[in-house]
């Protein structure tokens, strides 16, 4: 209960800490980037509601599967059709 000390006020000081939570189990299908088609244009990133898309150190656009809810917007909006939605295994 490290947050116990804050209980005095409805204030959260650890800003952005929902990032600690995984929402992976919201998903029934997941986006997969086909590297050879992707131009790293960031269009998918600007339209992701979470955001669950980021650019890695090498400048490649990647999916953050802990935070992707599988809405499919990225696949729908990618101008290169580089993202496929793939069913999750059950």
């Amino acid at each position: 209960m490290k947050r116990r000390s804050e209980i005095l006020m409805p204030v959260v000081f650890e800003v952005g800490n929902t990032a600690e939570r995984s929402v992976a189990n919201w998903r029934d299908s997941k986006p997969v980037i086909e590297r050879r088609l992707c131009t790293n244009c960031l269009i998918c990133w600007i339209y992701c509601p979470e955001p669950a898309i980021f650019m890695d150190e090498g400048g490649l656009v990647q999916i953050d599967y802990e935070h992707c809810k599988g809405c499919g917007i990225c696949a729908e909006e990618c101008p290169r059709k580089a993202i496929k939605m793939v069913m999750e295994d059950v």
């Binding site: 409805p10 204030v11 959260v12 800003v15």
Partner: peptide
């Protein structure tokens, strides 16, 4: 930064 007025 902090978030004030969060819900419980």
């Amino acid at each position: 930064p902090a978030s004030f007025g969060v819900f419980a």
